[in-house]
Design a binder for these strands. Structure first.
Lengths: 264, 264
DNA sequence: CGCAGGTTTGAGAGGAGTCAAGGGTTGTGG
DNA sequence: CCACAACCCTTGACTCCTCTCAAACCTGCG
């Protein structure tokens, strides 16, 4: 499993360590985890609905989505995962997949055996707690998605999603705050926002015409960070992204930070 | 903390043990947890938004909801918890409340110190894993709510919610499968389903007129279990409710069970 | 070159929201 | 024991946001 990319366990560890206190031993244990690299094509299942898995999937590059669906086959993306995310850490304690995991673009994942994850969790209680905490943060994101889908109109919903993704990409690389590759089609976006693809298209056009964000060719350019934060009623605290210690910010002033949305 | 009700830790333990393997020692540890009983009136916060808590809330009786909101103050109930649920076990690893917890009716809770929960989790790895698993099941319910709110129309949404609550109440008491006290107002239901109270009213009337369920005076009577399961596209597997060992069922044939919704 | 998948735009339909008013229930206090 | 108030439920009429259906138009690739 030699990869040209930096060790994906490294970026995963950094995310864990940003929320939990992990020492050198824990770090070594995470970095030495085994993993089997696999490439998956767009719209291919990584985990089928109902499948029992014995490994979790660490995203190396690309984008994957977790899908639920109603019985008419209408799909709903419940969560998305970008590079550095362990997409289904929860499968360690709930191996029967209640929803499908699918690549939204060509994606490279690292399959990490549950046995190895369970092993490090057992040996290092701090890791066990960190894993639990990651599941809790994932749940907080889910909760925000319930609000997003339930109580915001299409424009606000789209703006909120773009803000969330901007913050998440920036957390992995501070250059990516305002411009990032987000390889989801408008159909995928529709499934994330619980809209139709047609309406997604109109909504993105509106955001573009208003000079807030340009979403084209699977790349997102945030044009007006403060504007889109306001349009999306976005408050990033739920993401639990720690600010970097040296908060010199990214190159642009408009970098996502723990700004408080005017809670009028 | 002497209560006339059966030890609420007992029913919580049973829920934990139905999903995780816990032995006699773990059982004793859970049953001996400390707790401070409190009664809360309707529409009163149990945990305020942003508050840092040092205890989790075990519901003894009543109904509580977790609230998110958009910046216009429109509220969205993200999750509800009934007797026997630990409403915010996740706060043990994420003590800064990202959403408010509020009583939907007069409710009795038991405040359980994080320190005590952390203690038993540290001493008994099986309990630590069980706690993690509970958080994961809560997340699975959240995921289903995303689908419910995002991809189902009002009627289906209402039917699905009633099915979920029927299953959850029945899991605590097998008599409660088809008729249970659900002390939420139509405004609360609206906040759960991301509808307006007016539309909730019309939707419940439709379910009543169709002979599926009667929701009146904060009591739910399921009139046609198979019918409402179909109307709600309901598949209970996400709830991870284990079937009782002696599956003699409840008194009525229409008892909720792991029936598969016709997935046409 | 032609196809498949993705994006864009238009026109009409419909489900849920909004606004408004009235009726029912419960609890409290005179 | 009645009266009132607060809260909740119910219904109607109209509006509007999003969906549906449809048709082009890109664009990358075999």
């Amino acid at each position: 499993m030699s990869l040209s990319l930096p060790n994906p366990f490294q970026s995963w560890f950094e995310k864990l360590a940003s929320r939990s206190t992990l020492g050198g031993q824990e770090r070594e244990a995470i970095l030495r985890l085994p993993g089997h690299a696999t490439q998956v094509q767009s719209n291919r299942d990584i985990v089928h609905l109902g499948e029992r898995v014995d490994h979790a999937s660490l995203v190396v590059s690309g984008l994957i989505g977790r899908f639920g669906q109603n019985s008419e086959g209408q799909r709903q993306i419940i969560a998305v995962h970008i590079g550095g995310d362990m997409a289904d850490l929860h499968s360690v304690v709930a191996p029967d997949a209640a929803s499908a995991l699918q690549a939204l673009s060509v994606t490279t994942i690292l399959k990490v055996p549950h046995s190895a994850l369970r092993e490090v969790a057992r040996r290092y209680p701090a890791i066990a707690e960190a894993f639990w905490r990651e599941s809790v943060v994932d749940a907080a994101v889910l909760a925000e998605w319930v609000v997003n889908v339930g109580r915001r109109d299409a424009r606000t919903r789209a703006a909120h999603l773009l803000c969330e993704m901007a913050c998440r990409y920036e957390a992995t690389d501070s250059d990516l705050g305002l411009s990032f590759d987000f390889p989801a089609t408008q159909v995928h976006l529709a499934d994330m926002m619980a809209l139709t693809a047609v309406h997604v298209n109109r909504t993105l056009k509106a955001l573009r015409d208003d000079g807030l964000a340009n979403v084209r060719k699977r790349t997102v350019h945030i044009l007006d960070w403060n504007g889109i934060v306001a349009a999306g009623e976005f408050d990033p605290t739920y993401l639990q992204i720690a600010k970097p210690a040296n908060d010199n910010g990214s190159r642009l002033e408009a970098r996502p930070r723990s700004l408080q949305v005017g809670s009028t």
